[in-house]
Structure formats: C-alpha cells, structure tokens
C-alpha cells in the first residue's frame, strides 16, 4: 500500500519532535501520577483511621492492583489521551497547509493515501500513547498491591484471570472511541483552513457534547463521544474502575461492549471518508 510511506513519514515526524514525544508521555505521567496520588491518599486515610479507632479500614483489605490500574486507565491520563488524539488528528493535515508543506506530501502520494496514511499514523501514535499509559498505570498500581483475586470475607469474588479478562474487554471496547477521536480530528483538519480553527473546531464541539451528553438521552448512545473516557459514565474505560473492583451493582450490560466498539468504529470510517472527499476537492 502506498499510504505506508505516509504512515512511516508521519510516525518519523511524531517520534522525532519534542511535541510528539510529549504527547506519548503526558497521558502516561498523568495516569501513573493519578494512581500514585490515589494510593497515597488511601494510605493516609487508612493510617488516620488506624490511629483514630485502632481498626484497619475495610476497603484496604480487598483492594488489589486492578482497581488502581483501572483508575489510571479511565482517569486524567485517559482524558489527556482523548485531547491528544483529537488535537493530533486535527493538526495532521491543516498544519501542512499552514506551513506550506502540503504540496511536498501531494507530490509523493495521492490525496486519498494522504488522508488514510495520516489517519493510520495518528491512530498508531494514539495506541502507542495508550500502551504507555497502560504500562505507567500498571507500574504505579503494582507498587502497593498485587494483581490478585478480589477476596471479601474469605470469598473469592473475582479471580485474577477473570479481572485481566475484564481489563482486556474494557480496553478492546474503549480504545475504538479514542481512535475515533483521532479520526474526527482528521476530518476537522481536512475541513479547516488554519491550525487555530482546527483546534477550536475539534475541541469545542467535542467538549460541549461530552459535557451535555446526558441531555441527549438515548441519542448519545449513537455518538462516539459517549464511549470516550471524557466526562462519560458510559465509557468502558471509566466503567472499568468499578468492574475491576467487583462492585456488586456493576457489570457489563448485554451488548454494551459491542456497541462501544462498533459505534465509534463506524463513525471513524465515516469521518475518514468525509475527510478524503473534502481533501480531494480542496486546492492544496
């Protein structure tokens, strides 16, 4: 595929610039940091309770590393990753137009290859950033806890294997929404004329919809935004924080994970088709 050269070039750019490296590090630092701060606060709380009543706080007895890992995956780091996916996508074409380098790309590959290649590279970059977030969260979570079964009053509520499967299911269902954020960004990038307009065009509508999605009712279920870990209770990565602690009132609903994967997946393809159409029609 000729768009592979575009993917390689774009990844080269992202990995050789400070901003590109920072984009991978920031979610990981935020996610890992959030886990560490959470652990620190839990430790302080437990110590205070121990000092006041001489009893160990109940939660501390059942907490495994899966809970903090989920906090890291669905918290601040994930929100930062969503923003990075949106903005990296939003800048990918328009910045070339802005700095006059778009003709250099169009001399190398067709417009269709450019859109697909840039979108693929952005998605790969987001996946790498997510892996970094996962590793950082996992490392921070493993500092105080083991990835072991959740046992309450001698009863094993969930085995370690079951919990790893839940994590994998949440990641599998939650990642498409983040990748769709990148594809939405690419669409905005193709449609706008300046980097500033692209940033506003991607972030403002996304944030407003994320904040007010409850007012959309069931219609929100048909938007990828509902499944992105950004002010959303529906997002699998956010729901994982409860599932990974085996809370009694939390379980995946029928078809929930499939919907979380398919809705953003379809919308990502639609965004790229639109971006391709716009890029084909626009002068370079």
């Amino acid at each position: 595929m000729s768009c592979l050269a575009i993917v390689r070039a774009e990844l080269f750019r992202l990995t050789h610039t400070r901003a590109g490296r920072l984009g991978v590090l920031v979610p990981a630092l935020l996610g890992g940091g959030q886990v560490l701060v959470g652990e620190l606060l839990a430790g302080v709380k437990a110590a205070r309770a121990l000092a006041e009543s001489g009893a160990i706080v109940g939660d501390a007895q059942v907490e495994t590393a899966f809970g903090p890992l989920a906090d890291g995956l669905g918290g601040l780091g994930a929100m930062a990753l969503v923003m990075i996916a949106l903005l990296t996508g939003a800048f990918t074409i328009v910045r070339e137009r802005d700095q006059g380098s778009l003709p250099q790309w169009l001399l190398a590959r067709s417009r269709g290859d450019l859109v697909v290649g840039k979108a693929l590279a952005t998605c790969l970059y987001v996946i790498v950033a997510f892996v970094a977030l996962f590793v950082a969260s996992m490392g921070a979570a493993a500092l105080r806890h083991d990835f072991s079964a959740i046992v309450d009053d001698g009863f094993e509520m969930a085995s370690a294997q079951e919990l790893w499967i839940e994590v994998a299911r949440a990641v599998g269902a939650g990642l498409p929404a983040i990748l769709c954020c990148a594809c939405f960004g690419v669409l905005v990038s193709a449609a706008t004329g300046s980097v500033g307009a692209a940033a506003v065009g991607a972030v403002v509508p996304f944030t407003l919809l994320a904040l007010f999605q409850t007012t959309l009712g069931s219609a929100a279920e048909r938007l990828f935004i509902a499944y992105a870990p950004f002010f959303s209770e529906r997002a699998p990565l956010v729901r994982l924080t409860k599932v990974a602690r085996a809370f009694s009132d939390t379980h995946w609903e029928s078809g929930e994970l499939l919907r979380a994967a398919l809705v953003p997946g379809g919308e990502a393809v639609a965004c790229l088709v639109l971006a391709w159409f716009i890029t084909r029609k626009r002068a370079a």
């Binding site: 750019r13 050789h16 610039t17 400070r18 901003a19 700095q99 380098s101 003709p103 250099q104």
Partner: peptide, 8 residues
C-alpha cells in the same frame, strides 16, 4: 517558502 517541519 522553505516549508520545513519546525520541530525537526
């Protein structure tokens, strides 16, 4: 103009 990638 030069149209270089400023961060590289």
């Amino acid at each position: 103009g030069a149209a270089l990638e400023p961060g590289l």
